Amino acid sequence: MSNSHLFLKSGFPRAPLQNGIGRYVCQLQRVTLKFCKNHGSSRGMREFIENHLVDFAKENPGVVVYVKPRRHRGPVLVGEYLNGDREWLNCRNANKDDISKWLQLLKTQNGSSSSLRLRKMWHTDVPSIQGPWTPFTLRAPEANVATYPNADASRPLDVEQSATDKLIELFKQQRLADKNKSTDEVLEEKRAE
């Protein structure tokens, strides 16, 4: 085990400001694109700025975009988030498609994902050797090769009939029994009541 986690901030995982519960708020506040006008490793950054930066700015009006030319330095993307965190990405020799993917990644993060050592809310003396449970842990192997949409996959597995379904079925049986009786028998039953 390395000791690199000792210098990271630690905390419990949580959604920032309950983001996504009411509406989604993009956590990326500003992006700074730093590049050299002449250096070869900044070619992809310059192409992105010339061809795609205006489109990115129009699609994301809540993100402030700064372009900062610097002499004899490598290209860098710096993302600043609402919680005060900064994400720094080196884009040396990256093409314009890679830079657009990195910008998309910065836009979808909340800033604290890579610089936070996650602490758990529980402790156990005997940890599991199988790893954490996921929704795919106990799935049938046939689901790996199935093509979707699949009617069999949406069918519930041997689920017992619910109480509501039982009542509806009893009601239908009672109505069928009433229809099969003659009207004279029904009138006699009503008089007897």
Rank of each mutant, 00 (worst) to 15 (best):
H72W: 12
E50W: 09
Y81L: 07
P75C: 08
A57S: 15
F48Q: 02
V67W: 01
R71L: 11
R70Y: 14
P75V: 06
D85P: 02
N51S: 13
S41A: 13
G44T: 06
G84C: 07
H72R: 14
V54D: 12
Y66M: 06
R86I: 12
R43C: 05
N51P: 01
V54K: 11
G44L: 04
D85S: 10
F48P: 04
V64F: 15
E59Q: 15
V67D: 01
V65D: 01
R70A: 14
R43T: 10
R73Q: 13
M45S: 06
N83Y: 02
S42Q: 04
R70L: 15
Y81H: 00
N60G: 07
R86K: 14
Y81F: 15
D85N: 11
F56N: 03
E80D: 09
N60L: 12
S41N: 10
G74T: 06
A57E: 12
L77C: 02
D55I: 10
F56D: 02
V76N: 01
R71E: 10
K58R: 05
V78D: 00
V65Q: 00
V54E: 13
R86H: 11
E47W: 02
F56I: 09
G62C: 08
P75M: 05
K58Y: 01
N83V: 03
L77K: 01
D85C: 11
R71S: 10
I49G: 01
K68G: 00
G74E: 06
V64N: 07
G40Q: 12
V54Q: 13
V54T: 13
N60W: 07
E59T: 13
V76Y: 06
D55S: 12
M45N: 05
V67L: 07
V65Y: 04
G44M: 03
G62Q: 10
L82I: 06
V63N: 01
L82W: 06
V64I: 14
P75E: 03
H52G: 08
V65H: 02
V65M: 03
E50T: 13
R70M: 15
R70H: 13
G40E: 13
V64S: 11
G62L: 08
G84N: 04
D85Y: 10
V65A: 00
E47I: 07
P75F: 08
N60I: 08
V67Y: 03
D85H: 10
V67K: 04
E59F: 12
N83W: 03
H52P: 04
S42H: 06
R73M: 14
V67R: 03
V65N: 02
L53S: 07
G79W: 05
P61C: 03
N60S: 10
N83G: 07
I49M: 05
S42K: 00
F56A: 12
H72Y: 12
N83F: 02
R46P: 09
F56R: 02
V65P: 01
V63I: 15
S41Q: 09
R70G: 09
R86D: 08
E80A: 08
N51G: 10
G44K: 04
R70K: 13
N51M: 13
V78C: 03
V78K: 01
P75I: 05
H52Q: 14
G40H: 12
V78R: 00
L53P: 01
S42Y: 08
G40Y: 14
L77E: 01
P75R: 00
V78H: 00
N51T: 15
L82M: 09
S42I: 06
G84M: 04
R71I: 07
V65E: 01
G84T: 05
V63C: 05
R86C: 11
P69S: 06
R70Q: 14
K68V: 08
